[in-house]
Simulated assay, not measured.
Amino acid sequence: MNIKVALVTGGFTGEAEISYKSSAFVYSQLDKSKYDVYVIDITNQGWYGSLGEGEKVAVDKEDFSLHLNGEKIRFDVALIILHGTPGEDGRLQGYFDMIGLPYTSCGALTSALTMNKGYTKSILADIPEINVAKSVLLFENHRKDGVRLVEEKLALPYFVKPNAGGSSIGMTKVKESAQLQEALDKAFDAENTGQQVLVEEFVQGREFSQGIFRNAKGELIVLPATEVRTTREFFDFEAKYVPGLTEEITPADLHVEQRDRAARIIKEIYVRLDCKGMVRVDFFLESTTDKFYFIEINTIPGQTAQSFIPQQVRAYGMKEGDFYAELIAAALK
C-alpha cells in the first residue's frame, strides 16, 4: 500500500507564490508508485485539497483529512513546502503535533524560534568558529525611537529586515542615516512579520548558502555550499527570483579547511537548535578575516529546480526524488 503524503503549500504571506512553485517541483519528483500525493493548499481563505483542473475539496481540520467520493483520506505524513506563516513559524507543526501527524520539518518550538532572527542569533552566538554581526532588535513600541537606538549602537551601513520575515521581503540596505527611518517603516509594515525589526551592521565578504538534513538512518548530511554573487545591492527578493540577476555557484569555491569548518558549524547549528528534516544556513565569509558570519537559518527552504537545496542535492550526487524520499522516511520514524 502506498504512503499517503499531504504536500502542504500556500501560506498567508507574499511567499505563497514561491511555495506554489516549490511544491509543484517536489510533486514532479516524488515517485507516484510509492506515494499517493495530495496537494493541500492552506490560505487565509481556507484549507483545500487540490484535485487538479481547478477542483478542490475542503480539509477536515478535525484530523486533517479529505472526504473524496464517500471515502475518508487520512495521511501518513505531511511534507511541508509552505514558506512563511503558518508553515515555517511553528503554527502548523503545533497543530500536526496535536493530531499526531508526522511531518518533515523542524518541530513547533524550533520553527517558531528560528523565524525570529534576533532570538536565533542569541542562541548561536557562542558556537565556536561562528560569528554574528552586531545588531539591534526593535519592537513596535520602538518605532518612534528606532533611529536613535540604532545609531547609538551600530555603524553604517546597516541591513534592516523584518525579524520574522523571509525571502528578503521588507529588507533594505541603508548606506546613510537619512534612509534609516524609511527602511525601518518598510520592515515594520511587512505583512505577517510580527512588527519586529532586526538591524545589523554590514559584513563585507562572500555570501554562501548551505543545506543540511538528517536521513532515514539518522545521519546528518551536509550538502555542498552555494556561493551567491548578485548584481543587486544585496541578495533581495528580485535577486532571488528574477532570472539573470544572480550567479549561483554550486559547489562553492572553498578550500578544504573552509569546507570542513563550515560543515562543523552547520552541524552544530542543526543540533543546537534541535532541527529536523532539511534546513538551510546562510552565512558570510568576511573578506579581511576569513571568519564565518551567521546570517540566518531557513527551515522550509525553496524547492524549485533552481533553488539552492535542489542544486546542492544534485551536486552531492543524489536525485531530488530520492532526497525527498529520505525526508519522508525520516519523518515516519
Rank of each mutant, 00 (worst) to 15 (best):
T250K: 01
L184Q: 08
N192A: 09
Q29L: 02
L198H: 07
V279R: 00
L223A: 10
L109Y: 11
R148F: 02
K217D: 12
V147S: 07
R143N: 00
A331N: 08
A330D: 06
P251T: 12
G166I: 06
E320L: 08
F12K: 01
L149Y: 01
E71S: 14
D282G: 05
D253W: 04
E140A: 03
P162C: 04
S111C: 07
Y27W: 15
A58R: 14
S287T: 14
K56Q: 15
G90W: 01
I3H: 01
L109I: 13
I269T: 03
Q311Y: 02
L223I: 01
G277A: 10
K144R: 03
K291P: 02
R259Y: 02
S50G: 11
E200P: 02
E62H: 15
G100I: 12
T85P: 04
A252S: 07
K267H: 01
I265P: 00
A331S: 15
P243S: 11
T120L: 04
E286H: 14
G54L: 14
V57T: 15
A155F: 06
P128T: 05
V39C: 12
S135Q: 10
T231W: 03
K117W: 07
S65D: 11
G49V: 10
K34V: 05
L7H: 09
F188Y: 11
G205R: 07
G90V: 01
E53M: 15
F283V: 04
E152F: 00
V174D: 08
H67K: 15
K72F: 10
E17S: 15
K117Y: 09
K61P: 10
G277R: 03
F294C: 09
S287K: 14
E286K: 14
G166H: 00
A24T: 11
A112R: 02
A263H: 03
R261M: 03
G11I: 13
F284C: 00
E326K: 11
D185A: 05
T104P: 08
D253T: 11
D145H: 00
L109A: 13
V199C: 12
D260I: 00
L184S: 08
Y324K: 06
G317A: 09
D274E: 12
G118T: 11
V57I: 15
I127S: 07
N69I: 11
L220F: 13
S33P: 00
L30P: 06
R272F: 00
L137T: 10
V242E: 10
E62Q: 15
G218Y: 08
S122I: 03
T193P: 02
K276L: 12
L273C: 05
E248I: 03
L124T: 08
F294H: 09
V222T: 06
I130L: 14
N163W: 05
A125M: 09
S28N: 14
L30H: 07
T304D: 07
A164L: 14
I297D: 02
D236Q: 09
K21P: 01
L137P: 01
D290W: 05
L68V: 15
L66S: 07
L51Y: 15
G94V: 04
P310H: 13
D97M: 01
S307V: 11
V39P: 07
I123C: 05
T193K: 01
V197H: 03
